[in-house]
Design a protein around this nucleic acid. Sequence first.
DNA 1: AATGAATGAGACTTCATTCAT
DNA 2: TATGAATGAAGTCTCATTCAT
Lengths: 202, 202, 202, 202
Amino acid sequence: MANSKKQTVKQQKIIQTAIELFAEKGYANTSTAEIAKQAEVAEGTIFKHYGTKDRLLLSIIVPYLKEIFPSMADEVIGEIMGRNIATFDEFLEGFFTNRIQFFNENKEIFQVLVKEFIYNQELRNELFPYFSENVLLRFGKIFDHFQERGELENIPRERVMKMLFTFIGGFFVSRFVILTDYTITEEEIDDAVRFVMNGLRG
Amino acid sequence: MANSKKQTVKQQKIIQTAIELFAEKGYANTSTAEIAKQAEVAEGTIFKHYGTKDRLLLSIIVPYLKEIFPSMADEVIGEIMGRNIATFDEFLEGFFTNRIQFFNENKEIFQVLVKEFIYNQELRNELFPYFSENVLLRFGKIFDHFQERGELENIPRERVMKMLFTFIGGFFVSRFVILTDYTITEEEIDDAVRFVMNGLRG
Amino acid sequence: MANSKKQTVKQQKIIQTAIELFAEKGYANTSTAEIAKQAEVAEGTIFKHYGTKDRLLLSIIVPYLKEIFPSMADEVIGEIMGRNIATFDEFLEGFFTNRIQFFNENKEIFQVLVKEFIYNQELRNELFPYFSENVLLRFGKIFDHFQERGELENIPRERVMKMLFTFIGGFFVSRFVILTDYTITEEEIDDAVRFVMNGLRG
Amino acid sequence: MANSKKQTVKQQKIIQTAIELFAEKGYANTSTAEIAKQAEVAEGTIFKHYGTKDRLLLSIIVPYLKEIFPSMADEVIGEIMGRNIATFDEFLEGFFTNRIQFFNENKEIFQVLVKEFIYNQELRNELFPYFSENVLLRFGKIFDHFQERGELENIPRERVMKMLFTFIGGFFVSRFVILTDYTITEEEIDDAVRFVMNGLRG
DNA sequence: AATGAATGAGACTTCATTCAT
DNA sequence: TATGAATGAAGTCTCATTCAT
């Protein structure tokens, strides 16, 4: 996951354990004592490195959002969109497949992010800029790209993108946060792409 | 809201205040002391009536789910479906309109429900039976009804209903829990219905 | 000591114990756990009543300064100055005698006040207004009073009052805070009065 | 200041920083972490050199009292008293002028000394011997000297010296520890000398 | 000589809950 | 029914100190 900068072994264990526990029980219901115990570390060590419990949470969420998410997104966009992707259908399928794989590999950290995003209004306000800047903006560009190619014409972009995000958000949150043991099949990806494409085309 | 059964004035204030605070900051981040103070009630009074903080939460959620939600749902189904609704389009529009109005009137309690449902695994496990029994089952019946009438034919019910719920869930959670100041226009309801209908018809 | 308002027995014990320990070891070197133990009270009880350790300190100091000190001072001034006191000598002797008795009865709280006043810059800044308003101002009036009567004439009031306060401050701090077991004799009061009077008359 | 003996640069920075912080906030309210950070030194380095925080404090105070203070005092006494000083007035003026300059140059270390002396009973007990040995004893000799010369006759030495120290203590503590930004004028030195001389002659 | 990661005891504080009134 | 003083377990955080490098 590359949390950058020389992390000690203990730090890695702290972060890893915190992710697991925050994902399972939520930030507010996880005590630093519990993290320390499970990470086999003194409680003081947590605070030496992260200062406050709050900053520990941000140490998990911010790199995930700030470094990893956009870079992966660019990868998705650049690599996939640049070359062989001709239609929005194909793009969507690539997007779902790619993101599903990514979230499967980082299920817990995604759960932390979503749970706290929904639970904690302050955090939500802090994260919103990242969100709109990275996600909304990029998606907008992709939309433009395909519209220039002649696809998705005559569609009120803003209104339709809302529907798209509503579905995508519901999809990932329900599958990865609520139904934690759910397995997404290829068939379901097809269903989702078709549902969205038909919805958009109107 | 009819929380019925000889509630004292103090009890009503406690419940009302608890809903407000739980909605705003979440159950885990709200102390009974804070509720007591804002409800202008002694802390002991809360525990005289509800025993534990946990039971106070359930005193809010359970009636909402158990009594009010299903009864309203039946109303939706019975009243609306029984008579003049001919098409699934019409049903959907009625459903959205009706639920939007309902959640607008009970925004905070809906926020409490969703937040805790997502945050608290134990609560989720407890509530799931209600959910599938009332929501999924009823919707299934409605689906059957319209299929019998010749609509939505040749559609794999289970798979398509998943997509439907994904969108509906995303719609209400994003509009009422995440974007707390959002206002839904009639135009947007139309967009949503069209998006869903097209998606389903595929 | 009349800390006004219905105090519970536990509150009184907390305050009393806190005064003793703060006087002995200083605020910063006294833990709330220690206070709780010696006051035979749960640690939580301290925080129920005073919120923070800091407010506990202020609950000791402020009433002492705000209510008791000025009222006693007025007593000194009014009672003593109004009637039978003809000379500044007599006033000073009355003042020393009265204050020595007072501080003997409240030795520990005086120690707390002085120690924290000297140790803690922030507290000093907060208390300075009270100090100058009550002590300096009143003393100024007394000075004026005696100057109008023809005593202490031709003396630059401000400069000489500085010397007076320097001595008085040194006197009470050294005798009540530093040399905690010291006993002040009547002879020493005479010495002090004479020292000051000669000093002032120049 | 000549803290002599092969001190490394880091040691000097530690001592200097500790003096600054102890003076400002007091020993008890200053953490070794804070000292280390401000001195741009690792926390371990402090403990390599001084073993405990307590010994760091003593490393500041003891040399100041043990080596510098007396030697300077001797200088005052020998140099000044030996030669051209004829009267106690002159001596006092020399003393005030000399000490004011000295404390101005070492304001912070003097603040540390006074604050901890007043705050910390144990330290006070440890330092008392030095104090009476060096300060009281020397002053006694000076007193004798002037009495032999015919000045300050018929004065009960012990009782009057108490008054003298009371004033001097009050003077330096108030000007250098409490009113940290205060500037002492020559005029005020004159006032002080006159006040004391008149007081003593009584 | 110097570092800084790690510690664990203990500090202040919060909180759900109890109970006498 | 209602109060609010009291509790003590548990929470977050601080700190002097140790030790391997």
